[in-house]
Design a protein around this nucleic acid. Structure first.
Lengths: 141, 141
DNA sequence: TTCCTTATTGCAACTATTTGCAATAACATA
DNA sequence: TATGTTATTGCAAATAGTTGCAATAAGGAA
């Protein structure tokens, strides 16, 4: 939990504030290896800070994502999940069994350069999900 | 509207049925150049088929996407939008002004091959959204 | 340490999306 | 063309996510 306090200066420098709610939410996301849904984050956060509301969780997640402290990822069902920022990676997901696999962002570096050159856009960190069939499910179809 | 009937055999071959609701929804998506949100699709569909419900729109969109007649795209806000299938492309989106730009899938062909080789997954058509700063917004920051 | 500004929270009401289930209607078959 | 099977729809109720606004509290300045 103390670890989350480390983020405070980052926020203050931009005119924002560190609050118990933000600390708890950062703590929850930080200490879960995987991506979490807002409702799971709410349930976990509630155990450490009983008064916290779902509204605050939603708003805080959006805030933290916008400020680069967490990453949001869309895993294909129209819902966002969240993970701690710092490790740029993407996911491959099986359309059939739903299994997931991480892909390092470095694999996409060349593509990103190409896209930047071709478009004039300057690309920033953001999560991608690629869909397909995992080796196992390819056998069935 | 007749055009949507062309999809019927495709559905029947798989044991599904063509219905007025599906025809109207396909028609709406087909004749709009861009991606549409479920609520916009509902409003447009309602004009042609007044009794249609939002529930049906949501369920139909998911069904059509799963069967490859439409594509769903996630443009970053946690909500899905839909477009007619057939033109494989992706989008670049500006984090600041929200402007969008299409990217042909062919630009990603090499990457897809690399990912398939590295992972064993067999990748299938699906939409990606890349985030960044458009040329205009780069000046401001 | 106290005060002041204003970012942040909680509450309540709202909009968006999902789910279960009974009624309906495609469409394959006779 | 009439019939039976069952995929699909609509309705109602549930869950998920968003928004406006007044009350609260972070944290810089005195």
């Amino acid at each position: 939990m103390t670890c989350s306090a480390d983020y405070a200066p980052q926020l203050r420098a931009r005119g924002y504030r560190m609050t118990p709610q933000r600390m708890v939410i950062l703590h929850v996301i930080h200490h879960s290896g995987k991506h979490l849904s807002p409702s799971v984050i709410y349930e976990k956060a509630r155990k450490e800070l009983p008064g916290i509301t779902e509204t605050t969780v939603y708003r805080t997640l959006e805030f933290l994502a916008q400020n680069g402290l967490v990453r949001s990822a869309h895993m294909g069902n129209g819902h966002l999940v969240y993970e701690i920022a710092g490790h740029e990676h993407h996911h491959l997901k099986c359309r059939i069994c739903g299994s997931e696999m991480e892909v390092e962002h470095s694999l996409l570096a060349k593509l990103y350069h190409q896209l930047e050159t071709a478009s004039g856009y300057q690309l920033t960190d953001s999560h991608l999900t690629f869909f397909g069939l995992c080796p196992n499910c390819q056998k069935g179809e």
